[in-house]
Design a protein around this nucleic acid. Structure first.
Lengths: 343, 343
DNA sequence: TGGTTATACTAAAACCTTTTAGTAATAGTT
DNA sequence: AACTATTACTAAAAGGTTTTAGTATAACCA
C-alpha cells in the first residue's frame, strides 16, 4: 500500500488549505507565486504522488484503456500491442491487457471485468468464435467508447482499423499465379469474422481475374483456436489436399499461425517447397528469411494497426459525440521469398 | 464514462440506507434475508457494478499489479506474460504491462508511473542497461512488494524467479562438446545482469570439465538493446569469429534474439550449419523445427516463470511481513536438432 | 418488571481528490 | 467616498465505497 503523503499533509505542514495546495500543484492562477513555490518544493521534497484512485473517482475517468486480444503469446498480436502501448505511453494512458483465448465466453468475461474496472475505452480484436456483438453494443450504448482492430465485424458500428485483407489475399494469390502456379489451395481459419471472408474473397477474385476456375475442394477452413486442434486440423487438411487427383501446386494460407505451421507440416510430410507445392501466406514472423525454405509472406502493418486504433479510441474518449465512424484498412506488403518462387 | 447506478440509487429506490445496501451485497450477517434478497434482486436487475475507484480508494488496494518487461514484442517475453496473465486472471487481479525497451531511464519512468498508478505490487524483468537497483529498493522500503523475474540481480533482496541459466548454458556447451565440437564460441548480451554472467559461467564450467581451454577470443558480447545494433554487432562478431585462424566449430548463443539472428546471419554469410559451424542457443521459438537447418535450442519454461513469479508476488501482497525471500531457478530443457548434430 | 441479548437496521466518517462558491483584503475608477 | 475589479486564499461538497459506532425493536431470562 502506498504510504504516501496527501494534500492534507502538505496543507497541514504549510498551514494552508487543501484546496490551495491542490491548486498550487496544478499551477492555478488563483494562487500566488510565493505560495506555489513553497507547495511545490514541499511536495517534491516529500515525494508527493497524487492518489490516482481519488483523482479517478472524482473525475469519473481512469485514464486507462482495456484491450482484449486472442492471446498475448502470438507474434502478430504482440506487434500490435507494441503499437497500442506506445500510443498509450505517449499519451499518459494505462493499458490493461486481457486474453480471450479465442473463446467468446472468456472474451465477454474480459470485457465485463474491464468495464467494471472503470476503463475509459475498449480496444478489441474479437475471438474467432465470436459472432454475437450485442453485449458490446450494449456497453457502447451505456457510453463506453469502443474501437475494433485487426478483426472486424459489420455487426457493430464504431471506428475500425485493420489490414486490407481483401487486397492482401488478392496480391498473394496473384503472386502465386504469376509465378506459374495455376492450381491454388486456400487454407483459412474457421471463423465468421470478416477477416476470413475478406481473405477468401480476395483469393476468389484473383482466380477469377486470372481466368482460373474456383474449386471448392481446394479450400479448407481449420479450427485454429488452440495449438493442438490447429496441428491436427491442418495436418488433415494438407493431407487431403495432396491426396487430390488434381492436387494444388500452390497454397495460400490466411493467418500467421496457419502459414508457419503449414510450412512445418509440409516439410514434415515429406513434400518439397516450392517444387511439390508452393506456399505464401499472411505472416509477420521475423524468421521468414531463416525458415526452410525462406517463406514468402503477406506482411501486415501490425504496429500501425495498434497505434492507429489507439489513436481513434483516445479521440473517441476525448469527444464522445462522434457520430461518424471510420473504417481504416491499411495496406499489406508482399515479401516474396523462396517458398513461392517460380520453378 | 460509466453511467452506472450506485449504492445510493439502490438505497433510495428501496428506502434503505447506503450501508444496509452495501452490507446486503456482501452478504453480511447484519442484514435480514428478506432485505438481502430485495437488494440483490434490484442490483442484478439494474446491472449494478461496484465502482472500482471508490472501492480502491477506500481500501487502499487496487487489485492490480504492474509488470515491466523489455518488450512485449518478443516471443519469450510474450510467453512469460501469458503465464503472468493467467495467474492474475485466476486471482482477480488486473495486469498493467509496460515496456522498458532495454533503457534504464524508461524502466524507471515505467515503474514510477505504475507506482503512482496505485499498483499493489510490481513484477520486473530489468532492462539490459540496468545496473542501479536503488530506486527499486526505495520503493520496496516504502511498502511496494516487488518480485524479480527472468533477469535477476543480487543488488536487491526479494523473491526472484528465473531459469537455471548456469545449468542451461552448461548443458548446451556440453551438448556441443559431446557431439564432437571442441572449439566453441560463446555469444552473449552486453549486460551486467546475472543472466549473462550465469550463462557465461556455465559455458566456462563445461569447457573446464571437458578439459578444453578457455579462449577469450571465442567470447563475444553484443549490444542487443535494439534490432539494428543487434544485427550490426552480431554480424561483426560472427565475421570476427570465422576469421580467426583457429576458428570455432560450434557456437553457443545466450539469448533468444541472438540465437535466431545468429542462424540467419551465418546462413547469409554463406556458411553451412552445422558443417562449417554448429549452433545451439537459448531460444523459445515455436519455429525451431522449421528453420534452416532445424535449430537446437535451450528452452526455458517461460510460462511457468511468469506464473510462479506472479504467485510469489500475490503472496507477498497478501502478507507483507515475509522476511525470507526465495530465489527459484527452473530447469531448462535441451532440444537437440540438426544445427548441432554430430558430423 | 428490569435487564440482557440478538436482530436488523442507520448515520456518519473515512479514503483523497477536484471544484464550486465564497470571503477578505487590496487596488483602481469615478 | 462609494463603487467595482483583482488577487489570494478557504470551506465545503462531491465522487462511491466500506466500516465504525451506534439506535430501535423484539425476544429472552430471572
Amino acid at each position: 500500500m502506498n504510504t504516501n503523503i496527501t494534500l492534507r499533509d502538505i496543507a497541514k505542514a504549510l498551514n494552508l488549505s487543501i484546496s490551495t495546495v491542490s491548486r498550487a500543484l496544478t499551477d492555478s492562477y488563483q494562487i500566488g507565486d510565493e505560495t506555489k513555490q513553497k507547495v511545490v518544493a514541499y511536495a517534491k521534497e516529500h515525494h508527493y504522488i497524487p492518489n490516482r484512485m481519488a483523482k479517478s473517482l472524482k473525475e469519473g475517468k481512469s485514464r486507462s484503456i482495456g484491450v482484449v486480444v486472442c492471446s498475448i503469446d502470438n507474434n502478430f498480436v504482440a506487434q500490435m500491442l507494441d503499437g497500442i502501448d506506445q500510443y498509450c505511453t505517449d499519451h499518459n494512458y494505462q493499458l490493461i491487457i486481457m486474453q480471450s483465448k479465442e473463446s467468446f465466453e472468456q472474451e465477454k468475461a474480459c470485457v465485463n471485468l474491464l468495464y467494471a474496472g472503470g476503463i475509459d475505452g475498449l480496444l478489441i480484436s474479437p475471438a474467432y468464435q465470436t459472432t454475437d456483438f450485442d453485449y458490446l453494443i450494449d456497453l457502447q450504448k451505456s457510453g463506453l467508447p469502443i474501437v475494433l482492430f485487426d478483426r472486424l465485424s459489420d455487426h457493430i458500428n464504431t471506428h475500425k482499423v485493420a489490414s486490407d485483407n481483401f487486397k492482401g489475399a488478392y496480391d498473394a494469390t496473384m503472386h502465386l499465379i504469376n509465378n506459374g502456379y495455376k492450381s491454388i489451395a486456400h487454407i483459412s481459419s474457421n471463423t465468421k469474422l470478416s477477416m476470413a471472408t475478406d481473405r477468401f474473397e480476395g483469393y476468389k477474385k484473383a482466380l477469377k481475374d486470372s481466368g482460373l476456375t474456383y474449386r471448392e475442394e481446394l479450400v479448407k477452413f481449420c479450427d485454429t483456436s488452440n495449438a493442438t486442434s490447429l496441428h491436427q486440423n491442418l495436418e488433415k487438411a494438407i493431407q487431403e489436399l495432396m491426396a487430390l487427383k488434381n492436387k494444388p501446386t500452390g497454397i495460400f494460407t490466411a493467418t500467421d499461425q496457419l502459414t508457419t505451421k503449414c510450412l512445418s507440416l509440409i516439410n514434415q510430410l515429406g513434400y518439397q517447397i516450392p517444387t511439390d507445392v508452393a506456399l505464401i501466406g499472411f505472416s509477420n514472423t521475423d524468421l521468414a528469411d531463416a525458415l526452410h525454405p525462406s517463406l514468402s509472406t503477406i506482411h501486415q502493418p501490425a504496429f500501425e494497426i495498434g497505434n492507429l486504433a489507439t489513436k481513434q479510441l483516445l479521440a473517441l474518449i476525448a469527444n464522445k459525440e462522434s457520430e461518424k465512424y471510420d473504417t481504416v484498412l491499411l495496406d499489406t506488403t508482399i515479401q516474396a521469398r523462396v517458398s513461392s518462387q517460380k520453378n
